[in-house]
Design a protein around this nucleic acid. Sequence first.
DNA 1: TACGTTTAATAAACAATGCGGATTAAATCT
DNA 2: AGATTTAATCCGCATTGTTTATTAAACGTA
Lengths: 411, 411
Amino acid sequence: MAPLDMKTADPELMRAINRFHVMDAIRRFGPISRVEISDRTQLSATTVSAITAALLDDALIMTHQLGGIRDAAARGRPRVMLELNPAAAHVVGVKLALDQITVATTNFSADVLSSLVLPIRLHRQPVSVIADLVEDGIRRSVADAGLTMEQVSGVCVGLPGVVERIAGVCRASPIFGERDVPFAAELTARLGGVVATIDTDVNLVTLAEHWFGQARGLDDFLVISVELGLGLGILHNGELFRGANGLSPDLGDLMVRAPDGSGAVRLASAASEASMVAEAQEILAGSEHEHAFRLGRGIDKILELAAAGEPRILALLDRAGGALGFAIANLITLFAPPKVILAGAALEAGEALVGPIRRTVTELLPASLADVSEIVVHHWRDDIWARGAAAMTLRDLYGAPWNTTGPVVHR
Amino acid sequence: MAPLDMKTADPELMRAINRFHVMDAIRRFGPISRVEISDRTQLSATTVSAITAALLDDALIMTHQLGGIRDAAARGRPRVMLELNPAAAHVVGVKLALDQITVATTNFSADVLSSLVLPIRLHRQPVSVIADLVEDGIRRSVADAGLTMEQVSGVCVGLPGVVERIAGVCRASPIFGERDVPFAAELTARLGGVVATIDTDVNLVTLAEHWFGQARGLDDFLVISVELGLGLGILHNGELFRGANGLSPDLGDLMVRAPDGSGAVRLASAASEASMVAEAQEILAGSEHEHAFRLGRGIDKILELAAAGEPRILALLDRAGGALGFAIANLITLFAPPKVILAGAALEAGEALVGPIRRTVTELLPASLADVSEIVVHHWRDDIWARGAAAMTLRDLYGAPWNTTGPVVHR
DNA sequence: TACGTTTAATAAACAATGCGGATTAAATCT
DNA sequence: AGATTTAATCCGCATTGTTTATTAAACGTA
């Protein structure tokens, strides 16, 4: 074994750690004054002053001019409020799904400046074709935002499947026909100097939930997305959880009891949108509804029939919910997260799907963990992925120095 | 939310981090010279010199007098070898199982100085009775080692179930009738100044495997123990994995498909020693073997019959292996560990149990993870638990400063 | 308007740390 | 005995965070 892999400490690391804490406080609570940063971080006022001076110098933060609302009874020298400088950097977030590409450009505060959707079926396209499409989308979104590529600090691509972020390699994904696709390198090569990284789509939204969403400030929670495929994001101890080597797990690969009790099946084939649509298509073969599934949005038809109370569809959703509940119960047993966030078009079915999930989780969870987790449904706006991608890239820009999880830079 | 919870950096933390790295290098590779520490840790020779001087001053390490074996062609000033000072501290490790208490006293190098086994059925004894028994065992083991309680730096107790180490509370365990037992406090109160901590029994052995055993230097692996109950230990990114709030998960609480395909069952009721014995007893009711199960060591009878090729026992082991394989496949999907270590009396059945485990894992694992994990069986000596408890306590003594995971001290 | 009070932010002095280069220590080689 | 080689330490320097003192910028009051 080579040198011990943990980082040793020197003054530079010390500064990096404290700079991160200051940045994090400004991001989370800004506009915020130096005194309050000092309070929250437990750093001395002097240190905060020195660090903020450097950050102002680098134009990463700026003073909030529109004087803060001073308490009427305020005395003494007023606090100068500090906040992120939105113009300090711009990043592009991309989400690849089986049926579309979403691209958005954001500023340093993760505000979306421009976004676009390319409704293209990517299924089994060659990697180079997909990379070309993504490149075009990025360049167009950047132009729409009134920026040039030189002003873009980073690009982050989220996609379903098994992703090794550090290496920039997609080990397996429904998007690609091949295995072990070095998509980060592929894309970076096309962008002329702008570094692209990749991650699981759900990891992006998990980070977005942590920074902006329902789990703000919560250090442990799960995100489960039910789209064409299934996604799992885990925030554990304030950090995105990844398996060994930074390999993000794929929820669809988890095994569950078969809904009909006949053994084990992949969760993806029991509870993903794709599997539900296929099953519904089979159930309704020959009926008046059959043709609706030809149009590609079979899930909408399922929701419609569920709302109408069609019993076979309700039974289908019940089985899917049972399978999801099984997997979620096991995840709660392992991670004990206070919150589990569900999202995805299928969740629009409401109690028809969520009910069985909750019921199964309650049924299968041991008594000692009965009350640790709250299961909530969150309806995402389209841009949450982009904000997550932005957060991921911003984290790299001023990221936590104690994690060696930064991605490899391909040039 | 109060102050940001991550530690801020100051010179003291810097020194603590580097001191840890030096200690860790000495522990892992000692006897080791200062230059080699410098090489391995990437710290400058000056810094290593300063830190080792302080450690020598505190008598935590000592110079290795029996001059190292110098290469015949060696030139220059000889290296002075450094190693842990075994007498620097002593700790006591305790393991509670349903049928016995094991106690061992070790020195600073985790060598076992004395150990004893109390074959007592703890099942549903009052907490105070168990604490009394443990106290007696500890005092006797310490005396056997020729030490006084004043010389003991810490006590660590491992037990099955759901344990919240930081709080020192056992949330649920087959050992205790009650829930939420503050056993660390209970025991510390009896030991007059010596601090006791608790943890999952498997976590202790996981740390022992990491420090001394088959997984030395491996940063990611799983440990699965099949005893009367089931245990799961996870080393992830070089750290013991715990759920939110430091809650260690219980393998027995994981749900698996029922072996007969009729739904879901707790793994504990499908593959633990207890469940296998109960099932075997039922299968063999009325046969010549029935009375063997009255003697308490039913697992031995199972192994004997498996070796003899008794088909119903082989089928039983096959079902249990299938259930374990199901759970292990899901764990591999989540954690992607390069190694999975199995242990426990039931594993003596050899291929009759391990075969089905391997087969099921191979069958259920997705192709992208087919080759990441090696499954091995490790036969533990009785003292491995004690060494793990020692390692756990030593880690607290000179522990990783960046983890806020130290246990609460009750007095 | 002048001056005191209050609070925020910075400056100066100090202590701890790690590092690079020079120096000393301890062995072998010639 | 002196040169050579390698290990370990000493010295001076740069960086950092903290404490204490000082300045800055507001308001209140006479």
